[in-house]
Computed example of a mutant assay.
Amino acid sequence: MNVTAVIPTINEEGTIGTVIDGLKQAVNGIEIIVVDTNSTDRTKEIAAARGAIVINESRKGYGRAYKTGLEHATGDLIVCMDGDNTYPTDIVRPLLDIIQMDAVDFISCDRMTLRTQHNYTSLHYIGNSVLNFTMRLLFKINLNDSQSGMWIFYREFYRKMGNLSYGMSFSEDIKIDAVRLGKLIEVPIKYGIRISKPKLKTWNDGFRNLFHLFIKRIQD
């Protein structure tokens, strides 16, 4: 099957080249789409030089960037991950094998199981745990890492999903729909140490994601 990787970026010049090179080594012939959201550094130039398709998305929103990239994806299987080199590219090939051999629709990578204080702080662990608990309470969905940003899924499966958030809560939305519409499994990964400036605003985005879960449950 053909594979497309979709990577949202903003000011990732120090890492995007490594991510693209890693994906190319992992999957021969992979299509790589970088959706850049107003970077002011050389992210776009580096990505293009490495052979990625670069799409400019001036509208704000984590989910917006992914939706834009996924609209242009041509692969049967989709790999989604950040451009900051915190998610491992060398696990992509095994994950692609798993999703096909085990007849699942969606793989979400779990950062919590193998976490350390160096790559995943106690504050983020507590916040993620609260969101995991809330998802379990409201939707009866039990995940170790409801906020993970690395996923593997079929493009046709994604097309069945609707009403996904344009913001950071896209990450929890897509997992809720994946459980509702098919079979999701989590695979533990070793999360890397971030070297670029974090884009996540821990408190603001955490409360927004929590509030979004309640709104989504009411709308359902």
Rank of each mutant, 00 (worst) to 15 (best):
112 M>F: 13
87 Y>L: 11
171 S>F: 13
50 R>L: 00
208 R>C: 07
53 I>W: 03
61 G>K: 05
8 P>A: 07
78 I>A: 05
151 W>K: 13
7 I>N: 01
142 N>G: 06
7 I>T: 02
39 S>D: 05
138 L>N: 11
65 A>T: 06
58 S>M: 13
189 I>F: 07
28 N>I: 03
37 T>G: 15
50 R>W: 01
25 Q>E: 14
214 F>P: 00
8 P>V: 03
153 F>M: 13
136 R>M: 12
205 D>Y: 12
61 G>I: 04
107 I>L: 04
22 G>C: 08
100 Q>W: 01
87 Y>E: 11
122 S>D: 06
19 V>C: 04
32 I>C: 00
57 E>V: 03
28 N>H: 13
120 Y>L: 15
101 M>Q: 15
201 K>D: 15
13 E>M: 12
206 G>F: 10
181 L>C: 04
131 L>Y: 02
205 D>E: 15
96 L>H: 07
83 G>M: 12
67 K>S: 10
163 N>K: 14
61 G>Y: 02
66 Y>D: 02
192 G>E: 06
64 R>V: 00
192 G>F: 07
109 C>F: 02
97 D>G: 12
82 D>N: 14
152 I>M: 12
136 R>T: 08
68 T>W: 00
173 D>E: 08
7 I>K: 01
4 T>G: 11
12 E>W: 02
53 I>G: 04
138 L>H: 11
23 L>R: 05
176 I>F: 09
22 G>Q: 10
182 G>V: 11
125 Y>V: 01
60 K>A: 12
112 M>K: 09
206 G>A: 12
209 N>C: 14
89 T>G: 04
51 G>L: 08
146 S>A: 15
184 L>D: 02
149 G>L: 09
122 S>C: 03
210 L>W: 06
8 P>N: 05
1 M>S: 09
179 V>C: 15
175 K>T: 06
71 E>T: 14
220 D>V: 12
62 Y>T: 04
11 N>F: 07
130 V>N: 05
96 L>Y: 03
17 G>H: 01
197 K>C: 04
64 R>K: 14
